[in-house]
Design a protein around this nucleic acid. Sequence first.
DNA 1: ACTTATGATTGCGA
DNA 2: TCGCAATCATAAGT
Length: 433
Amino acid sequence: MDEQPRLMHSHAGVGMAGHPGLSQHMEGTGGTDGDGRKQDIGDILQQIMTITDQSLDEAQARKHALNCHRMKPALFNVLCEIKEKTVLSIRGAQEEEPPDAQLMRLDNMLLAEGVSGPEKGGGSAAAAAAAAASGGGAGADNSAEHSDYRAKLSQIRQIYHTELEKYEQACNEFTTHVMNLLREQSRTRPISPKEIERMVGIIHRKFSSIQMQLKQSTCEAVMILRSRFLDARRKRRNFNKQATEILNEYFYSHLSNPYPSEEAKEELAKKCSITVSQVQYSVSNWFGNKRIRYKKNIGKFQEEANMYAAKTAVNATNVSSHGSQANSPSTPNSAGSAGSFNMSNSGDLFMSVQSLNGDSYQGAQVGANVQSQVDTLRHVISQTGGYSEGLTASQMYSPQGINANGGWQDATTPSSVTSPTEGPGSVHSDTSN
DNA sequence: ACTTATGATTGCGA
DNA sequence: TCGCAATCATAAGT
């Protein structure tokens, strides 16, 4: 009916619908009587109601008209400026995040663990240690243990990278999408390029925080893996027979001074192809344990001592033709050191042995070096008949003899720790565990 | 199941 | 920091 024209009139040329009518209505209330007022209100209500009835086309047309208005660009710029000065500047102030130390830490750790960084590095400390350990002989369980760790690590690595890629892709997609949307909208509402930029920044920040979460959980996973690995390391594993033999050979051939140097230990570890889980301190542990247990109960170890003495002797005689005197404590247990024995020395050595057995030798430091040779040689003597057959190895390696000789047990406490009568001496709880 | 052997850990002193 | 001594914890043997 007649509503349409009226509506058109009330809206003419003004963006905000209803205000003119409203003001009109206010004026009306001021003056006339109740009837007129009612009429006004009815009009206004009508107008308001009909706004929603506008067709979409109409609205579009209006919008277009607005866009084409000659003042539009200027107005747009002004609005953008105002917006920039108010909202964005306020927000900008609080968005300055500090350089993230935690992220740096995470990155560093991932790099160190070989999760990020160059491909196939496997650069974790554990892996590196393992690699170093396997350098010599590559024990069976060594590589098994190690490869298990490596496999898990690379699994984590893979997941990490695919996730990271996914996030990056999603971030890019989302950013372009938002940018397009904002560009589109910037035609109709005040959005400056700067604001778009800012929005992109916000998106990137959001995604990088997600990335950080990923990094964090990756780190956690690596830590768990590592701790498991280390737990496995803590778990006791006996040395294999060969390793024990090598260590024992060294021990008994250096009975007077069974303190291998760092290099010697390293070499022994290599020779024993000790597992990853054992490499770090085990040689030291082994010698520590051996010394203490030997000392505590020499009797128990006599047989073993004899055995290794004989063994070393055999080695010695086998290599005896090779008469070089390679008296290096760091390359000791090898047959070569046994080979150091030569007949011209035997007299002196014999004397040494005698004095050692004679309980008088208190293991002076000077003597210790010589002793490392002597120990090896004593069994050679016994083997080659330097002593009478009656004087068996068991005698040679009698507790007293050893006790007296090296002085390594009681070099610090020369007084009778292990008196002959006490035999194995004050055996402590260890054996009766 | 119990005992023994043995590698690892801890606390201490030099 | 090293070695010793005591102790723990587990593998291996019975």
